[in-house]
Structure formats: structure tokens, C-alpha cells
């Protein structure tokens, strides 16, 4: 059974009086353990697709189905979706989106604390993840004291701390220089290889494309090439 199964997904945005069709009948299947890039120009619908896969946005009612680990996502309530996201999906954002008043360690502990994991256990798991992304010496640093690359590594640790089956990264290297971007991709790739966690990330950076197992090419809201 595929990890992600999408059938005929549509998404339309209203911008004032204009309706913009961001996704036009996407049908997609991704297996567990894949390392996938969604590639395409700006406005092609990459982020929209990732938001829908991550269950943080709703498709048009005309959409057929979306199953994650066999579970029908459209039928879940908001609370059930929140729980599902917390347990099964990790997010890595372009702007890192770390909580500025929390230290690196506290940021990584956050998903576990939302889950209700006791603090000592959450701390231990977060430390392990920060060690994996080579930030052991920065655990007490707040995000504003970390470089862009370090912040994104904290975000990776945060995304993986709950051992999710899926990690979604929306343009994870867009705000990083080439060298740091390559480091981030290699870390993600390594974690994918070691833990068999499925990674889906969007990018329009041609240099990163070479590192992925599978490439989904989007244009005008449609998959034009796989």
C-alpha cells in the first residue's frame, strides 16, 4: 500500500473577484521511504500540493480522495487532523519557522510536548535529534543566535523528533547559500536512507534535483512529468 494516494485533487483560490486554479486534477501515489522533489516554476502549485499532502489545507469539494497511510484525510475532523499531523508528518519550512523565544532544544521538543510526552523523555529525544544534525553545542541558543543553515537543521530535527512517516519540506533551501543548501539536502537524504522516512520537498533549484530519487514536475497546477 502506498503511503500517499491522491486522486483527482483540485484546489482553487479566490483572489478578490478572480478565481485561480492552483491544482487541476492531481493524481499521485508516493510509497514509504521515497525521497521526492516537487519541481516547477513559481506559481506552478508546488506549495499548494505540499500543503494538501501535509493536511494543513483543504482541497476543492470536487476533489476525489486523499489517503495517507490508508486513512481518508478528508473525513477527519480538525482535531483528528491535528493529531495525525503531529504523529505522522514533520514540516520543514522555507523561513525555518522556529519559535523565537524558545531555545533550539525547546523548539525540537515542541512536537513531543504537544503530543503529551513527559519533558525528560522529550528532552532526551530532542537531544538525540540535535546530535544527529550536529547541533549538540547549540542546544541553548535561541534562533536569532543561529545561522540560516543551523536554523534549518534545528527545523529538520524538529520535523523528525516524533519519528514521522512523512516529512514535508517547502523550499527548504531557498533561503540558504549553495554550500549550506547541499549540506541540508545531504542531511535529509541521509535520514531518509537511515530511517526510511519519506521526504517530499519542493524546489525550483536545479542543483538539488540530482540528489532525489523521484522528481515530480508541476506546471500550471498539473503534473507534466514524473
Amino acid at each position: 500500500m502506498a503511503l500517499i494516494e491522491m486522486q483527482n485533487i483540485h484546489k482553487t483560490y479566490r483572489m478578490g473577484e478572480t478565481l485561480v486554479q492552483a491544482l487541476r486534477g492531481i493524481t499521485l501515489s508516493i510509497d514509504a521511504g521515497e525521497f521526492v522533489a516537487v519541481w516547477g516554476p513559481s506559481g506552478s502549485g508546488k506549495s499548494t500540493l505540499l500543503n494538501l499532502i501535509g493536511a494543513i489545507d483543504d482541497p476543492d469539494p470536487s476533489s476525489e480522495s486523499y489517503r495517507l497511510q490508508g486513512q481518508d484525510i478528508f473525513s477527519l475532523s480538525d482535531n483528528q487532523r491535528s493529531e495525525m499531523r503531529n504523529r505522522n508528518i514533520g514540516f520543514i519550512f522555507q523561513q525555518f519557522n522556529l519559535i523565537p523565544v524558545l531555545s533550539a532544544l525547546e523548539n525540537v521538543m515542541l512536537p513531543l510536548q504537544i503530543q503529551g510526552v513527559p519533558t525528560p523523555k522529550a528532552r532526551e529525544a530532542a537531544l538525540r535529534r540535535l546530535e544527529q544534525v550536529e547541533l549538540k553545542d547549540f542546544i541553548d541558543h535561541r534562533p536569532d543566535k543561529l545561522s540560516g543553515g543551523q536554523q534549518q537543521r534545528v527545523a529538520i530535527a524538529r520535523a523528525l523528533v516524533t519519528h514521522p512517516s512523512l516529512v514535508i519540506a517547502d523550499e527548504p533551501t531557498a533561503n540558504l547559500d549553495t554550500k549550506t543548501a547541499m549540506v541540508i539536502v545531504s542531511i535529509m537524504k541521509e535520514l531518509n536512507r537511515q530511517e526510511k522516512t519519506t521526504f517530499i520537498f519542493s524546489t525550483h533549484d536545479q542543483r538539488l534535483i540530482d540528489h532525489v530519487d523521484r522528481l515530480i514536475h508541476l506546471e500550471d497546477g498539473c503534473i507534466v512529468e514524473e
Binding site: E83, R85, R87, I114
Partner: peptide
């Protein structure tokens, strides 16, 4: 920040 927390699974 609220959006991030919601994405990470914090309920309303």
C-alpha cells in the same frame, strides 16, 4: 508562530 504550532499538531 500560531500557524507553525497548528502545523506541528497543536489543536485549536
Amino acid at each position: 508562530e500560531i500557524g507553525t504550532l497548528r502545523a506541528l499538531g497543536l489543536k485549536r
